[in-house]
Simulated scan of single mutants.
Amino acid sequence: MPTCNQWNSHQFVSQIQTWARELGFSQTGIADIDLSSAEAGLSAWLAAGFHGSMLYMAAHGLKRARPAELVPGTVSVITVRMDYLPASTPRQPGEWQAMELGRLQRPTEGIVSVYARGRDYHKVLRARLQKLAERIGEEIGPFGHRAFTDSAPVLEAELASRSGQGWRGKHTLLLNREAGSMFFLGEIYVDIDLPPSAPVTPHCGSCQACIDICPTQAIIAPGKLDARRCISYLTIEHAGPIPLELRHLMGNRIYGCDDCQLACPWNKFAQRSSLPDFDERQGLSGQQLATLFGWSEDAFLRLTEGSPIRRIGHERWLRNIALAMGNALRGGVANPADEAALRASLQGRADHPNEVVREQVAWALDP
């Protein structure tokens, strides 16, 4: 196992942080691998069934809290975060949040979560984490490592909070005083003994704006999320029909949901990405539902190439949009031409071969 002398180990961490900044990472920290204090909470969350149909969460069990079991030989974890707001995001404090919340007042427009409007973050972070690992190897020689970004049984937010990246907000996401929560997380498990970074204290206080704004009340208590009610889970992870009692609460959100982050006061400090990868793709922001629903499978695959949206597939995409179109019709569309376009678009897929899509279309057309 490679080692760093005690007197220069902190200096080496500083060097890693410099390399990471050069690769576009906003902050880098070091976490130790003793996550035993998180095991009880993870077990209780799984036992309550809050993971819904994400069976992979339960399949790996407590391995998430035991890095050395996931990657034998691991003794430290390098954590990183990367800001992702597009460069075009308005800079006036509060302006971009108001702009995003304003989309909810345009029911015929489909809302894609901000993080998903650019390139797939898995690809961006993974490639740069690998480059960081290669740079470390050039300095110290071969070493054991494995990079992750939302792609394995890893307690990402827990590791990030323990390594000084921020604190866990009441919505369970990581919050940073200088960057809010609009960033991605990544890790490199290493067999190098590195000095851990100091954690930061929480700064949510009595605020519960994220809890109050959640459309489906998925945040059942501070720090407790029932994923089965979360719109991000329902539109991305969940493969079957959307529960009837939640449909009307989802509005025109067709991929993910940012509401808890938009309401958070700390996101007035959210930072724009230094990379062009997360700039908005044409057609994924401000687009009409009827237009998006008209995409053929070939068009969907072409227009979402390299995007995280592609992971849900064309059928789930249609299901989500049909639900949003039904909500628009139920809420009353001001322009008769827009209403006619929605109905015509839905009727065009009334006989879709997928049962879930057909049912969602029928629901949308049923007043």
Rank of each mutant, 00 (worst) to 15 (best):
G332I: 01
L23G: 00
T18D: 14
Q217C: 05
P199F: 10
C257G: 08
L132A: 09
C4Q: 14
F25E: 07
D32Y: 06
A362P: 00
A38S: 15
A38M: 12
T18M: 12
V200G: 07
T304G: 04
A239L: 12
G137I: 08
G283V: 05
G164T: 03
W317E: 01
T28A: 02
N327A: 05
M82I: 06
R319N: 03
D34H: 09
E178N: 14
A48G: 08
T304E: 00
L289Y: 06
L244C: 05
F300W: 02
A341H: 03
Q165G: 08
A322C: 13
L262V: 00
G240F: 03
C264H: 09
A179Q: 08
S296W: 11
N5E: 12
W317G: 06
V333S: 02
R128H: 14
E245A: 06
I213E: 05
F278T: 01
P215C: 08
S307Y: 08
D366G: 06
E39V: 04
L284K: 11
V80I: 01
G29F: 01
V77Y: 02
H238R: 02
C257N: 03
F300N: 07
T79E: 07
I236R: 04
A299H: 09
A133D: 07
R302A: 14
N8T: 14
P336S: 12
E100M: 14
S232N: 02
T291N: 03
A340I: 02
R103F: 11
G41T: 10
P93S: 03
A44L: 11
A340F: 04
T291K: 00
G141I: 08
S113E: 11
D226W: 08
L125V: 13
V356I: 15
R103Q: 11
N320L: 01
L101C: 09
R128A: 02
P353H: 08
Q165A: 13
W363S: 05
S88P: 06
Y121H: 14
Y115N: 10
A263Y: 07
S43M: 02
G141Q: 02
G306I: 13
V71M: 15
G110S: 11
L129T: 09
G332L: 04
H203C: 14
L23T: 04
P72C: 05
R343G: 11
R21M: 08
E315T: 02
V357F: 02
C4E: 15
F293P: 14
L129G: 09
H203A: 15
L262Y: 05
P2L: 14
R247Q: 10
A362I: 00
V124E: 01
S197L: 09
Q27G: 04
S26L: 10
D258G: 12
A299P: 01
S113P: 01
R91V: 03
M182A: 08
K131I: 02
E280R: 14
S53R: 00
C214P: 07
V356C: 00
R126E: 00
D32H: 14
Q287C: 12
F269E: 10
A209M: 01
K224G: 02
Q17F: 10
L289T: 06
A58S: 15
T304P: 04
L23R: 05
S43L: 07
D279Q: 06
I213M: 07
G294P: 04
L342A: 02
A324M: 10
G205L: 00
L125G: 14
E237D: 05
L346M: 13
S76F: 07
S14T: 10
G41H: 13
R247S: 03
R64W: 08
